[in-house]
Amino acid sequence: MAVHQNDQLVVGPATIDFVPLEQAATAIVTGRTPGGIHLCNAYTLALADEVPELATALTSDTANYPDGTPLMWWAKRRGHPNAERVYGPDLMERSLDIGRQHGTKHYLYGSTDEVLASLSSAIEQRWPGAEVVGVESPPFRDLTDDELKASIDRAAKAGADVVWVGMGTPKQDYLVHRMAAMSDQTFVAVGAAFDFIAGTKRQAPRWVMRIGMEWAYRLATEPRRLWRRYVIYNAKFVRLLWRSRR
């Protein structure tokens, strides 16, 4: 169940929570949003519209923030003029920054050992004093409940307040949903934020994001991996919005 009930929009199976980025980050680092937090874009919502398991994860957890410029355009057309994008990398960066004032302890879960090493180094250099109390690269397969519970216990033993999960959609959303059911910590699915902050993947320029063409930039950089996501599911997202409008 979403916690920000003053400014929301239902898109397909999910309720999107519109809050300023600063407010979302502050809520995370101060422990006001325990449970699962998802960053939703066109792909997430179009996929959830056809996969019941993903729809359940989005509708059951704490909050769904809008991570996608086309979604923001739609929100403004539907009566949310002040809607602000909560971009995963920006949310993580801002949380690391202001978390230093609150003694927030972070745990990094996902990706590879190499990316996690680069990410930890980048955090240490860019946000001195940010407390990363653990990193973990889980197996690239479905985890049993016992394996996932062991990971949660390790994060808890390390004193983590926030577990950042960077596994890609929808895998990370399933994991965050399962984790949130096992613990009262905060779990945030942030997708490619690990790679972007670590510098292991190129991030689209801000002007490309502003005109809603970030998907084209990412498709050009990783065509074999992302063509289906953007070519097929962008069209499905447009149909989803048309259905929501009707």
Rank of each mutant, 00 (worst) to 15 (best):
V188C: 10
H177K: 07
V238T: 15
S111W: 09
D146A: 12
M1L: 11
I16F: 08
F140I: 03
G31L: 05
L108E: 05
V132R: 01
S121N: 09
G88E: 08
F18L: 06
T15P: 08
T26S: 15
S118H: 09
L58T: 02
I37G: 03
G168M: 03
E50W: 11
H4Q: 04
A220Y: 11
L116G: 08
L240N: 15
I123H: 01
E124I: 07
Y65W: 09
M167G: 07
Q101T: 13
G99N: 02
R202S: 14
D173M: 09
N234C: 12
D97P: 02
P223D: 01
V188M: 04
A27D: 14
D184L: 01
G36P: 10
T104C: 11
K149P: 01
D61Q: 07
N234E: 10
T200M: 10
S183R: 07
K105P: 00
W215T: 03
V190R: 13
S137I: 01
K157G: 03
V86I: 14
A155R: 05
A156E: 11
L45A: 08
N64T: 00
S60P: 00
L116E: 02
E53I: 00
R246S: 12
Q23I: 08
Q101G: 08
R224N: 09
W127Q: 06
P70H: 08
M92V: 12
L45T: 06
T56L: 11
I197T: 06
Q23G: 05
D97M: 12
H4F: 13
V10C: 11
Y109M: 11
V29M: 08
T33G: 01
W127M: 02
R77Y: 12
